[in-house]
Amino acid sequence: MELLLFNIFNGLIVGLFYALMALGLSLILGLNGIINFANGSFLALGGYLAFTLKPEIGFWGALVASPLLAGLIGLVIERGLIRPLYGRDPLYSLLLTFGLAMIIQTMLRMTWGANGLPFKVPDFMSHPLSQTYFFLTGYRVFVVVLTILAAGSLFALLQFTRVGVRIRAGNSDLETVSALGINIYRLRAVNFGLGILMAGLAGVLAAGRLGLTPTMGASLLMPSFVAIIVGGVGSLMGSVLGGIIIGVASGIVTTYYPAASQVVIYLIMAVVLIVRPRGLLGQEGLLE
């Protein structure tokens, strides 16, 4: 029983990383119309930046600064490379971000080395909170709380601020938004930066849990795609839900049949596609 709970909780944590990553991907997929393959590399970048910044400004400073920094780099890349691709066949943005992922990953390896680096979280968070449930460390609970906070603030931003309303409006009809005199290029840039910010945050959190390697993002990227497909394209809430579902499912399967822990994610996707092709919370006909 403890083992099952342990694996479910573990799966939940990983699922939250998927969810954070899927949130960023979903944002960019919606308004920018791009499947951002480089999101995984930006995630790793966020983690590595935190690794470098931590000795200077401490864990908390790094937790805030490195996602912001990653988002900033995302803005620059959007301006230079992504912007020329709007309105063109999605094939091209796929290929470009694919190439970008390779470039960033190689740069990470050149800068920080190919071997894994440890990312130590503050001591008070690394102790178990309970004797029986040894897996409930402070850090894991912290990851849960922070993910809820991050997702919550993103939803609040989209719901209550002017930019957020514009982003949502742009998702359903970008042309009209543009006709109303809103600079959609700036809007898309902000949106892209936000998406990368989420990836960067996931990177810092994942670094504390999984350690740092140049390929850490790539291995989280695929499940995040599945999270979006399961949750439904066009629904941010769906992406979060999808991430948690596949994470927990993978955790449960780990208990009974570890070899299938990854494959089960794709089986869930297959079932969802057969039973409900638009995903759990997805809208019909979006992005097709």
């Binding site: 119309g33 499947i35 999605p90 795609f225 979006i228 497909i229 394209v233 992005l287 097709e288």
Partner: peptide, 8 residues
């Protein structure tokens, strides 16, 4: 599904 969704 079609389009980007198909690719994913």
């Amino acid at each position: 599904r079609r389009g980007i969704y198909f690719a994913m």
